[in-house]
Simulated assay, not measured.
Amino acid sequence: MKTKKELLMNLRLALSSLLLGMLTAFMVQAFQWTLEDRKEVTFGLPGEVTILTMFEGPQKVSAADAASAREALKAYLNDQSLALVYASVGEGRPEMIVCDPHHILPWLPRAGNEGPDSTTARAYLFRGTYTAHRWSALGTAPLLPNGVEVAGVIDAPPGTDNLQYVRTIGREPLPSGRYTINTTDPTQVKHILDLFYRMGFVPQQSQKIPLLTYFLQNPLLMITLLFLAMGHVCAILDWALYIRGRAREFGIRWRHGALPTDLVRENLVGGLPGLGVGSVVGVILSDLLVAGIGQTNPELGNFRTLASAAVSFLIVIVTWSATLYGVIKTRKEVNIDA
């Protein structure tokens, strides 16, 4: 009788955990997609970032003053352990410009991290681009500014679209456009804006992208979290009804000295097989569904799948334990009062 009871309980838990496992896997997938989307926006800069959109201002600036401000900008980024990334949009050279003296950008080779005193710009061509093919075939890179040395060919970072190469800051004047820096500190941002002003620019837009805010403003991630929360509410209601249906059994156990914690522990251990099987199968089904929709090969043994299964199993254990304790404790107090 006990074996049949545990079998039915595990079957019920497995079905609920399967659905929760699918929703958890979708949530982890949405979290990963959100991170990848943010990497495209920030070009892989970690932490909090600010995007400055600069255009030429009305102030008159000499070439010497602009060059002095440019060198001061490089020195400030070095002193503050910051990185700056420019990406061309629309007209102009299809390029990226970086200043990363402390190797914050993971995709940029260390040799490309110029110090504040460097005046020679180095360029890394993006693999598979027109410029990289011309360099491999003819040894020329016509889209590069004069005086820029080609240091090698690398894989393009996220968000580069049709950009051809990345170069470090040299003697070439900086162009107007969008600059991304890995800070939201008002003092640091203001100082950088002041240096840009000395180079002849004024800000058109200053946009902060904090990591938490970016997650909260992502519709896919928020909808997935909402579905996961609603799924847990449904599971709790279903499990609570099941536990209340065993009130007579628990009443007999209470009269013989069983504590609520003993009943919770016993039913938690007995339900682990159903919780575990349901969570794992749900995650696998979710990955197969996503792979089928995206027409990609499923990778069931990767870190994301394992992490999804572990997170799902942990969540359903906590949910099942809390439901058990809440219902059993409440029913016991009601029974005593009665």
Rank of each mutant, 00 (worst) to 15 (best):
G200K: 02
F126Y: 10
T184G: 10
A14T: 02
L52A: 01
L143M: 10
I97S: 10
L11R: 07
E149N: 07
G276A: 15
A30W: 00
T224Q: 11
D37E: 15
W135Q: 03
G152H: 06
T330M: 06
G294H: 02
T131Y: 01
M222S: 13
Y325D: 00
V281G: 10
T119D: 13
A132G: 09
A291K: 00
K2Q: 14
N218Y: 02
L211N: 01
D37P: 08
T34W: 10
K190W: 04
M9I: 10
D161A: 11
L19G: 07
V148F: 04
E48Y: 07
G274D: 07
Q32T: 12
V61P: 02
P109Y: 03
G170M: 08
G147H: 04
K208F: 13
A291T: 06
L272A: 14
G231S: 08
G47H: 14
E299F: 01
P101N: 15
Y124C: 08
L237W: 13
L263W: 04
L221Y: 13
R244H: 11
L275I: 13
Q59H: 15
L8W: 03
A123N: 01
G257C: 11
L212F: 09
L289F: 01
A240V: 08
T261Q: 15
L143Y: 00
F227G: 13
A111T: 12
